[in-house]
Design a protein around this nucleic acid. Structure first.
Lengths: 211, 211, 211, 211
DNA sequence: AATGAATGAGCCTTCATTCAT
DNA sequence: GATGAATGAAGGCTCATTCAT
C-alpha cells in the first residue's frame, strides 16, 4: 500500500487528514455492517415487502434517522444485507467442496452443506429468493442478484467439474438445476421440517445427475 | 307458454328461473374471465407488488368498484388470474408429451414446448414466479401455489416416467430441477432474448439427465 | 268518506282508476312492511352504521334494486323500520298499564313489561338508542325520534299520573328517568343477561320514586 | 461535566439520558393533548361517524400522517379525547359536591353544576352519548365507556349517599336516572336553549327523588 | 453523528346510489 | 314491477423519506 508514501511534499496535516478520513470510513463501514446484521434478523422474519424501515429500526435498536444516515435508501440497505449473507453462504460452499479430490467426497460434502444450510439458514434463503423475484420487476435489485448468482454459478461450476469424469453440462445448467432443488426443499422445509438425512439424500441424488 | 315443460318430473329441463339464474352465473363468470385477462396484462408488466387495483381498473377500462364487485379481494383477483393462465400452460405441456411413446420424441416435444412457452409467455411466467415468492410470506397465496405446483409436478412426473428406461428420480426432484432451469432461462430471456434452438437444446440437455 | 261520491260526472273509468290506484298503494304499503320486517332483523344484529344495503338485501332475500324501489333512501328505510317497531313497543306498554286502577298494580305491570321487553327485544332497543344518537348529528333522523319520544313520553305520563297520589313530577321528567334506567339495564343485559326478577325489581324501585 | 452527579447511587438524580427521554415523552404527551383538543372540536361538531381522519387533520392543521404518528388508530385518538374531556367533567362534579355537608346544599350545588355543564359543554356531552352508543356495536369502545361510567357512577353515588337521610337506592340506579335526565335536557338544549334556572330546577327536582 | 417528528402520496376497501334491461 | 351490474367518492391506514435540531 503506497497510501502513506504518496505526496510527501504535502504538509503533515494533509496526511493526517487522510488517515482520519480512512479511520472514519472504516468506522462507518463497521457501523453499516453492524446495522446490517440486525436488519437481516428483521428481514428474515418478515420478508422484504413486509418489513418496514420502522420495523428494522426498532428491531436493531437504532433510530429511523440513523438508518437513512448510513444507507441512502431502503433498497441500498436491503441489498447490503443480502450481499453480506450470501458472501457467507458462498464461503461455506467453497470450504465444503475444497479439500477433497475424490468425486464422491466432493458431492457428499456439498450435499451435506446444502442440507445443513437449508435448516440452519432457512429464513435467510427465503429472503434471497424474495429479493431475486423482486429483481424481475425492480431493476434496482438486478446488480446484486446478478453478482451473487454469478458467484454461486462459478463456485458450483468448479465443484461439479472437479467431481465430473467426463466433460459435462453446459455451464450454469448445473447451478440452475441445483437451485431448483434447493428452492423446493427450502419451501418444503418451511412448511414441515425435513430431517438432515433426507435433505442430504435428495441433494446427493440431484448432484449425481449433474456429473 | 311452455311453463309446463319445466315440470319437476322432467329432470332434464330446468325451470325458467333456473335457466335465468344459470345464464346470469355464466355471464358473471365470463365477465370475470374478461377482467382477468386485462388484469393479467397489467400484472405481467408490473408484477404483483407494483400493480395497484387502480392500475388494473384503468387498464381494463373498469371502475375500481366493479373490480371488487366481481372479486372480493385483490388476492382473489390475482389468484384467479394465476390459476387461469397456469391451467393453460399445464394443458399445453400435457398435449406436448402425450401422443408419443418413444422416449426421445417425448423429451424433444417437451423441450420444444418449454422453450416456446418461455419466449411466448415470458411475462406470464415471471408473474408466476413472483406469486410463488409472495406465498413464502403471505399464506393467502399458498393454496393456489400448492395446487398449481402439484399439477405441474404430476404432469412432469408422468412425462419423465414415460421417457425413462430405468426407475428413476425421487418424485418431485425432476420437477424441481426442470423448474430451476426454466426459471433461469426465463430470467436470461428477459434480459437478452435467447433463440428457440438454444433454449430447446438447454432443456433437452437438462431432461436427459433426469431419465 | 265521500271519495266515491265525488264528481259523478267523471266517466266511470276515472273512478276505476282511483280504485286501482288505491289497491296499488295498499299493495305497495304491505310490501314495504314486509321488507321492513326483514330489514329490522338485519339492523338489530349489526346496528345502523354497520348494516349495509347489501346486507339488508341479502338478509331479506330481496334485490338491492327493490330496496331503493320501495324506499328512496337508506334513511327512509331505517326510519320506517324504527317507527314500525316502536309502535309495537308503545302498544305493549299501553296494554300493560291500562286495565288497572290500583297504583301498585299499574307499577307492577309496567315494571314487568319493561323487564320483559329488555330481554325479549334487546337488539331492537339497541337499534333505537343507536338511531336516537344518530339524530344528534344527522337532522334527517330527528322527526322519527321526536315523534316516538313524544309518544313514549305521553304514554308513560298517563301511567305515572294514574299511579300517583299527589300531583307529581314535571312532565317528561319521569320519562327521562325511566329511560335512563332502561338504557342502563339494556346495556348491562347485553353484556351479561340479568334475570327477569332482578330487572323487574329495578324498574319497580325506579318507578316508585316517580309517583 | 456533572456526569458524576448521575451516579446510580444517587437515586434522586436521573441520568442525562433518562432526563432527555423524559422530556421527550413529556413533549410527546403534550403534543397528543394538543391534537386531542383540536380533534374534540371537530368531533363535537360532526359526531364520531361523520368525522373523518382527514377532517381532523385539516382542522388541527396537521398532516394525516402525523395523526397516526401520535395515535395508532382512529379509535385510539377518539378514546383519548373522550377520556380527556370526561376526566374534566368528573372533576367538576366532584368539586361541586365536596365541601358541603348539608344535604340541601349538596343537591343545590350538584344541580347547578349539571345545569352549567349542559349549556357550557353541550357538544362535548353530545359526543359522549354518541360514543357510548357506538360502544353497543363496536367493542373497541367498551373499555373507555365502562371506565368512565364507572367513575361517574361512583362519584354520583358518593354525593347521593351524602345527601340521603335513609339508606337509599340500589347502586347505579341513581346514576342511571340522572343520566336519563341529563341526556334529555342536553337534547332539548341542543334544539332550543333552556335557561340555567330552568335546567337547575329540573335537576333539583330529579335529584330530590333519589335521596 | 444521530435523532425522530412530520409528511404526503398512495393503497385497498366499502357502500349508497344509479340505471339499463 | 323488479333486478343487479356498475359506479365513484370517500375512508382509514401505511410507510419511505425528509429535515430541523
Amino acid at each position: 500500500m503506497n497510501q502513506r508514501l504518496s505526496d510527501p511534499d504535502l504538509p503533515h496535516s494533509a496526511t493526517k487528514l487522510e488517515e482520519r478520513a480512512q479511520r472514519k470510513a472504516a468506522k462507518r463501514e463497521s457501523k453499516k455492517a453492524e446495522i446490517a446484521v440486525s436488519t437481516l434478523d428483521a428481514l428474515k422474519r418478515l420478508g422484504y415487502a413486509n418489513t418496514t424501515m420502522r420495523d428494522i429500526a426498532e428491531h436493531s435498536g437504532m433510530s429511523l434517522g440513523s438508518l437513512t444516515y448510513y444507507f441512502t435508501d431502503k433498497v441500498e440497505l436491503i441489498t447490503y444485507c443480502v450481499r453480506l449473507y450470501k458472501a457467507e453462504f458462498i464461503g461455506r460452499i467453497e470450504s465444503a467442496v475444497s479439500g477433497y479430490t475424490a468425486p464422491n467426497r466432493i458431492l457428499d460434502s456439498l450435499a451435506a452443506e446444502l442440507a445443513r444450510s437449508i435448516t440452519d439458514d432457512l429464513s435467510t434463503h427465503r429472503l434471497w429468493y424474495d429479493i431475486r423475484s423482486q429483481a424481475m420487476f425492480d431493476p434496482t435489485f438486478r446488480p446484486v442478484v446478478a453478482e451473487i448468482e454469478d458467484k454461486l454459478n462459478r463456485t458450483l461450476g468448479v465443484a461439479l467439474r472437479a467431481a465430473s469424469s467426463q466433460g459435462g453440462l453446459a455451464p450454469s445448467l448445473g447451478y440452475a438445476m441445483i437451485d431448483g432443488v434447493f428452492r423446493q426443499l427450502m419451501q418444503n422445509t418451511a412448511e414441515e421440517p425435513l430431517d438432515q438425512a433426507e435433505l442430504t439424500a435428495r441433494f446427493r441424488q440431484a448432484l449425481e445427475r449433474l456429473v
